[in-house]
Structures are given as C-alpha cells and as structure tokens.
Design a protein around this nucleic acid. Structure first.
Length: 285
DNA sequence: TTCCAGGCCCATG
DNA sequence: CATGGGCATGGA
C-alpha cells in the first residue's frame, strides 16, 4: 500500500525527532521508523510541505507530532526583540512539541537523569527489546508499567540503568497498581499536575516538566536541565551569570517567554545542544 | 585520568 | 526553605 500524504507547514521532522524529546526513532532510508504507542509507523518528509506516513496512520501521526499547533501564532507571543531566542528559532523553526504517550514519556525521562542523549536512547531501545511487545523484527513497543514492575529492579539494572533502576521499578509498581492514574491527572491544572508527578520516585521538577510538556501538552511547562540553565545564564545574564538561583531563572523564564515558554525552552535547548554554541570540551570559565 | 551528562533524594543548617 | 554530597554508567 502507498503511504498517506500529509500537507504540512512550519514543520521539520528531523529536528523534531532529534531534539531530545523522544529517543527511539531510527533513520530508515530517507525517513524514520519507530512506534507511536503500539503502532509501528514510517515517516518521511519529502519536502517542506509534504509528509509521507504509513497507510492509515494520518490521524495518529498528526496528533503525535503536534501538527495542529499553530506555530505562527505561538511565535507571535514570544518576545520579538529577544536575539538569542530568535536565533534559536531561526535555527529550527519547524521543531514541534510532541504529544507522547504518558507512561512512555514518564518512564523514559526517569531513565534520563544525569545521562547523555545517546545513552538515553540506548537504554530506551534496550528496555523495549527486553520487556516490550515485539511488533516487527526491529520494532518493540515501550514496555508497560506491568511489564517493568514484573521484571524487577535487578533485571532493570541489567540495562545500564544504574541507580535509576530502583526509581523506574518503584514508579512502574505505583502506576501498575493504580496508586497514580496518569490519565486521570490530566484533568489537573499545571501546578497540581506537577505536584502529582513529583510524588513518583525519581521524578522531580525537571522530569515532571518534561513529561508535562512532551506528553500532557502543557506548553507553559519549562524544564530546566544543565543545558538550559547554562544557556539562560550566558545568554541573558552574562554580566553576573551566578547571581540568580535556579529557581529565579525559572521565574524569569515564566514572565519573559510567556504562555508558550515550553516552545521557547525547546528551541533554545535544541540550539544550545546541537549548534556547537557551547563546545563541550571547554574548561571552567 | 578526570570531567560531565535533559536530576533526584536525603541529610543538614 | 535553601544548600551540598552521593549516586551508576559510559563517553569525551
């Protein structure tokens, strides 16, 4: 069967899938192969306005990729005279915030703490291969909470998880036994949702905000990791980079970037991490 | 060898 | 409430 064709605007598939939101997509030919929930999907952006997707997957893909987000309108709400932000935006204007499955996103970011992006990918693929349902020779669904709960902490440690194995296992248990209902808490407002997520083992403000942004469509969430913290200090507070606490940086971001600060965060993160603006081997200033 | 990575937990003050 | 040490693993 031929692929379905989606007409897209302001969309960049490669930047979106390689911006540190999601970690399991693989290049295949000119496109990507991966899973959306339990569905295997192929994606290929043929040109600026054409996205080819697996037959019958148009609605699923559109929802997952956030193709309904009005990026032009979102960009209008961002500070126009903010040079660093506009530069990051110009670097990858079609980068979109995904709507990932909640459990998959939560579990993946629990495994992300103090790990580099390639490691997170390795862990994610290993967990899928060992504990996820196989749907094709090279494609496995993300393991369910029940599967990871049953696997046990020791088996998870065997996936290079280190101290994160306990967090992932404990959280899987709590989701599997219904202590926390990830669907139900989507009814909460941002502050209450963050608090609910932070009750889970291994989930603090940063991971909670990632899950809110990448799975719950809370576009005002603002995850602060080492990249964003460094970028904000150097780009906006170069005179006294250590004057503000991390908490004060978040407060600045909230008022400065506005209601769609999550998008601003992702553009800045992607630019900072992949453009070489912070060369990694640089010694302490 | 040393440093660092999409942080969180827990013990102190 | 704010701060600092500890934590597993692997790549640069």
């Amino acid at each position: 069967m031929p692929p379905d064709t989606l007409h897209v605007q302001n969309f960049d598939l490669a930047s979106t899938l390689d911006s540190g939101q999601v970690f399991h997509w693989s290049r295949e030919g000119e496109g990507f192969s991966g899973m959306i929930g339990d569905q295997p999907v192929r994606l290929h952006q043929r040109d600026e306005n054409t996205l080819l997707v697996s037959p019958g997957s148009s609605a699923l893909v559109s929802h997952y990729l956030g193709l309904d987000h009005d990026l032009a309108a979102i960009q209008k709400t961002l500070p126009k005279r903010d040079k660093p932000l506009q530069r990051a935006l110009k670097y990858a204007p079609g980068l979109r915030i995904l709507r990932q499955p909640m459990w998959e996103c939560l579990a993946t970011f629990i495994t992300s703490s103090l790990k580099q992006v390639p490691h997170i990918r390795q862990i994610s693929l290993t967990l899928r291969a060992k504990f996820g349902v196989q749907v094709e020779p090279e494609l496995h669904a993300y393991p369910t909470p029940e599967a990871l709960a049953k696997a046990g902490e020791q088996a998870l440690r065997g996936c290079s998880l280190g101290y994160r194995a306990k967090f992932l296992h404990q959280t899987a248990l709590r989701i599997a036994d219904g202590t926390l209902d990830l669907e139900a808490i989507s009814a909460l407002d941002d502050a209450a949702l963050e608090a609910a997520l932070c009750t889970l083992p291994g989930v603090g403000p940063k991971i909670a905000n990632c899950v809110m942004l990448f799975a719950y469509e809370r576009l005002g969430a603002f995850p602060v990791d080492v990249w964003i913290e460094r970028a904000l200090r150097e780009l906006y507070f170069a005179d006294a980079p250590d004057e503000l606490s991390s908490k004060q940086l978040v407060a600045f971001a909230h008022q400065h970037f506005g209601p769609y600060r999550g998008y601003a965060q992702q553009w800045i993160f992607h630019h900072a991490r992949t453009s070489g603006m912070f060369s990694r081997q640089r010694k302490g200033d």
